[in-house]
């Protein structure tokens, strides 16, 4: 399955853009989903009294939750829902019968979806930034840091895609993988990925565990880089850990895919 050599990648990517643009309402709903929870969490963290050991002040929380919706969106993946649906309704057949790598479609769909969400998220984030800009310090931002930030987003996106993809592929055996996803991906990701609480504010032991798991790299890590909280060595260390997870889950995905296809019964008889 050579995803780089496949013909028609751009047309399939364009098709996903067209589909998403067809359903404007859904785009808005997903935009709201990405905005609401971080806004609520930001308000909560700003309104409570901070413990003495907490390295985050109000301005840190503001910057953190200003970036959360953007990073959440850019590393988002809906492969779990889409793939399980394709197995159930048989539309996976369509993909399997084309001379086009079936899983590449989900990667392209993710790119289209995440890019189009920015239509809502960038103006919102910009407006939010204008509102709080006096309280946010960005003087530390250097081109090299911004480059690391962008690479971390791509790495985070890939990490989320392969972890979610591995769970999605269990649809070959399990009727409903969304619950499995909620346990293995959604819940742990929200906690150890830094959505509910910034990872940097965890006690040291939990921070250490979060650093070993892939979830931090899907959300918190790019924001930590942008906030200037990580040394260059820590950034490289983070990249190495994340890439190891990506490689591991890519191999897992491949194994599950090959094995799953053998048990795939499609629909009808």
């Amino acid at each position: 399955m050579n995803i780089f050599a496949a013909s028609g990648k751009l047309e399939v990517l364009a098709a996903y853009f067209k589909i998403i643009l067809t359903y404007r309402g859904m785009l808005l709903i997903h935009g709201l989903r990405l905005l609401l929870l971080p806004m609520v969490l930001a308000s909560a963290w700003l309104s409570i009294e901070k413990t003495p050991g907490n390295p985050y002040g109000d301005s840190d929380y503001l910057l953190y939750y200003l970036l959360v919706p953007l990073i959440m969106n850019l590393t988002d993946s809906r492969i779990v829902f889409k793939f399980s649906l394709a197995v159930k309704d048989g539309s996976l057949n369509r993909d399997l019968l084309k001379p086009f790598p079936p899983l590449l479609g989900y990667l392209l769909e993710s790119i289209a979806n995440n890019a189009l969400q920015l239509v809502y998220l960038i103006p919102f984030s910009f407006a939010f930034w204008l509102f709080v800009r006096d309280r946010i310090v960005l003087t530390h931002l250097q081109p090299s840091l911004l480059l690391f930030f962008l690479i971390a987003i791509i790495v985070g996106w890939l990490a989320r895609l392969v972890v979610s993809g591995s769970i999605a592929l269990f649809s070959f055996w399990i009727e409903d993988v969304t619950t499995l996803n909620l346990v293995l991906n959604g819940g742990i990701w929200a906690l150890l990925g830094g959505m509910i609480v910034p990872v940097a504010t965890f006690p040291e032991k939990i921070r250490y565990i979060a650093g070993l798991l892939p979830y931090r790299y899907m959300l918190s890590f790019p924001i930590e880089i942008f906030s200037g909280r990580l040394s260059t060595a820590e950034i490289y260390q983070g990249f190495v850990t994340a890439i190891m997870w990506i490689v591991l889950f890519s191999v897992i995905m491949r194994i599950i895919w090959k094995s799953g296809l053998k048990t795939y019964t499609a629909y009808g008889g």
Binding site: A6, S7, G8, L10, E11, V12, A15, K18, I19, T22, Y23, G90, S91, N93, R94, L97, K98, P99, F100
Partner: peptide, 22 residues
């Protein structure tokens, strides 16, 4: 429902197929 992209007009599916099949 086998080959057509359900959310797009058929002409779009044709254009995608054109590229996929070279």
């Amino acid at each position: 429902k086998q080959n057509l992209w359900w959310d797009l007009p058929p002409i779009e599916t044709f254009a995608i197929h054109r590229r996929i099949y070279g």
